[in-house]
Design a binder for these strands. Structure first.
Lengths: 106, 106
DNA sequence: TTGACATGAAACCAAAAGGTGTTATATACT
DNA sequence: AGTATATAACACCTTTTGGTTTCATGTCAA
C-alpha cells in the first residue's frame, strides 16, 4: 500500500491568490462551491478545482450536506509554514541586523 | 512613471522547493551561482532563473564581485508572509480548537 | 594576448496550471 | 413523476513554469 503522497503541498497551495482568498472566505464560515464562486470572476468549475488543490494540501475539508458540498478551513497544515518561517526570523530580527551592520562596518 | 510591479510575489517565490533550498543555502552565506548549482541536479542556467525569481520577490540580493555574481538572502519580504500567517493563527490555536470540539460534541 | 572561467541572454521544449464548456448524476421541490 | 439545483467529471485550450542547449560577454591569470 503506497502512501497517499499528496500532489500539492502547503507552499504550492497558498501560492495562488484565488486560493488565498478562498481560505479567507472560509475562515469562520462553512460555504458551498456556489456561494464561494459568487466572489470570483471565474467559473464555478475553476473554483472547484482550486478547492481540490486546497483539500489535497489539507487546508480545507469538505462535507456533503444534501445536494451541496460545504467547505471549511483547516488551518493545521499552516503550522508547517510557521515552522519554516521560524527559521528565517533570525534574519530579519533587529538585534541580528544590528550585529550584521556592526560586523560589516569593520 | 509606472511602478516596478514585480512579476513574482513572496508566495509564488517560496512555492518551489528548489527556491526554498536556495534560500536555505544562502542563509548566512553569500554564494555564487556556480557554488549554488553544485547542490542541485539541474543546470546552472536553471538555478540562475530561480535566483531571478527570488530576486524579483526581493528575497535575494545580488552583488557583482569581479567575474562572479554573489547572492545573499534578504529575509525582510518574509514579514508579509508572517503577517498573513498571523491571521490564521487563531484557527489552530489550542483554546479555539478545544472550543470547537466542545461545540461539535453538542 | 590567449585561454579558461562565470555568467547572462535567447531560443526552444514539455509538462503543469488555470481556465472554459459540456455532460452526467444525485438531491430537492412541487 | 418531472423539473430545477448543486456539483463532480471530462475533454479541451492557452499560458506559465521549469528545464535545456547554444551563444555572447566580461574577467582573471599565465
Amino acid at each position: 500500500m503506497t502512501a497517499p503522497l499528496p500532489k500539492y503541498d502547503v507552499f504550492q497551495a497558498i501560492a495562488d491568490p484565488t486560493r488565498r482568498k478562498l481560505m479567507e472566505l472560509l475562515s469562520g464560515e462553512e460555504l458551498s462551491v456556489t456561494a464561494l464562486s459568487s466572489h470570483f470572476p471565474i467559473t464555478r468549475t475553476a473554483v472547484s478545482k482550486h478547492l481540490r488543490v486546497l483539500q489535497e494540501a489539507g487546508l480545507v475539508r469538505e462535507r456533503k450536506a444534501g445536494r451541496e458540498t460545504r467547505y471549511s478551513l483547516q488551518a493545521a497544515p499552516l503550522l508547517e509554514l510557521k515552522r519554516w518561517l521560524g527559521f528565517y526570523e533570525q534574519y530579519w530580527d533587529n538585534k541580528l541586523a544590528a550585529l550584521q551592520r556592526l560586523v560589516e562596518s569593520e
